[in-house]
Amino acid sequence: MTSLIVKTAGRALTPFILLSGLYVASFGFLSPGGGFQGGILLASGVILIMVTHGSKEVHRLAENIDWFETFGALTFLIVGLAGLLLGGYLFSNLLPDTPLMCIVLDIVIALKVFVGITAVFVYFFGMGVKEC
């Protein structure tokens, strides 16, 4: 269905989109960016591959990747409970004056948003395929 030009351009652009997503997610504490924006960028890279190359492989990948969503939510909760147990209140910073908590939560949120948006698009595409 898609032409050779679209396939080649999608294959060439996707690594750079993923790299910029990783940069935005992991350097969100220093520069503009953050977990949500990085996660959306990562998901847009995967969606580009899905649009240009068909969604069969990505569909199989996305069915095995859903548990990352639960993993992200649980990690967020564990960080909060560790702050409650060791620091005195919920989500207290364990290492003051260092951005460790921001980095960890940024990467966790980026993973969670990436998996979530990819799963939503995969299931929307699956709905459209069933219709035809």
Partner: peptide, 20 residues
């Protein structure tokens, strides 16, 4: 507003699935 953007997105995704 960073929070509100994500909640908008989640609400619209769920609404579109229900409309389908």
């Amino acid at each position: 507003m960073l929070t509100a953007i994500v909640i908008d997105l989640a609400t619209m995704a769920l609404g579109l699935a229900l409309v389908y």
